[in-house]
Nucleic acid binder design. Sequence first.
DNA 1: TTCTTTGCTTGACATTGTGTCAAGTGTATC
DNA 2: GATACACTTGACACAATGTCAAGCAAAGAA
Lengths: 194, 194
Amino acid sequence: MSSKEAKTRTKILEATWKLMEQNQGQGVRMSDIAKSAGVSRQAVYLHFESRVDLMNATTKYVDEVLGLDERLQCVSDAPSATKALELFIEVWGNYIPEIYGLSKALLAVRDTDEAASKAWDECMSCLRNASRDIVEGLNQSKVLSSQWTNDAAGDLLWTMLSVQNWEQLINDCGWSQTQYVDGMTKMIQASILD
Amino acid sequence: MSSKEAKTRTKILEATWKLMEQNQGQGVRMSDIAKSAGVSRQAVYLHFESRVDLMNATTKYVDEVLGLDERLQCVSDAPSATKALELFIEVWGNYIPEIYGLSKALLAVRDTDEAASKAWDECMSCLRNASRDIVEGLNQSKVLSSQWTNDAAGDLLWTMLSVQNWEQLINDCGWSQTQYVDGMTKMIQASILD
DNA sequence: TTCTTTGCTTGACATTGTGTCAAGTGTATC
DNA sequence: GATACACTTGACACAATGTCAAGCAAAGAA
């Protein structure tokens, strides 16, 4: 019964995800995760090498479950490049709250751990590539502001849509989710469109 | 000789600052700081309650030494609101690299420690107020884009100028310092000016 | 049914870094 | 010479990660 192993693994991943979101990525111990998953602390170490390894695996797991790629599908199907930009901001902007806790946890260890950094970058590269594609589309439709190169506009778009900016506007400035999406859309349109 | 006490205190603060910048705020232990300051580890605890207390004190110290307020003086003296915006972005943008290491360290503990959060917010409120003032000036000069309220534009300006955005553009996107200042200026002008 | 393997448990232990405590040292000052 | 002060020294408590070895219970093979 090798499915038992997989089941336990999934239980641990689910518990990790849940706790990370509950506590916004802060102060979640290995023993908390084990308890929440209904297994011993050591069982966690039988499935994952270390805390960082577990977090990376959880990131991958969450990514599969939530399916950002599929959500971004509708962006590719957009009738125009400008509409694609709008949809992109909306889809990603509404995705952030779902992954916020885990993101925070990953970002916190990113600086001290090479593997975590890689995991985060991998996750982000999806967004970065999407940003580049959008900008490329805008450029081909001749609506990209002439003051930017494709690369610069892509970097800016990607940076503006960072989890940290979302966090700052929502948490520190008290913006609502709709305010965020609307505001970001207006701001980005103003800065990179002609 | 109460000046000896102050001297030791300063030595510790200087050592903390130096190590934080050297290691970009990561993996700096109390014993490292003590050794670098040339005092015993316990001496550090005689001057500062805890690690977080020390970091907050260092933040204050650095703030005094570098004098952001004075640097921002030239912004107030600007001949026009639009020029003030330009100068603001330049002064702050060039200030970031000087406080980057310490900022990272402070941001890292911000989520787990109330006192650190307060210290950071206090430091940021200076920038936030400046952002508000700039926007207010732009509004009075009738050059603020009509799509924003004063508050929203202030929040956006402040968010765009975050240390994290600087970090992402410089470290992840490989922008140079000049590219950052120029890019930010163009982007912000495009988004909040008429 | 018995034997073995597999997945997990249990409890002990090493390690690292923070923070505390108490006794001791050296040195200006009265 | 006595005193107070700033710091040192070394031991300790504590929390969290990660390791190790022995054991247990159930599934599958003989």
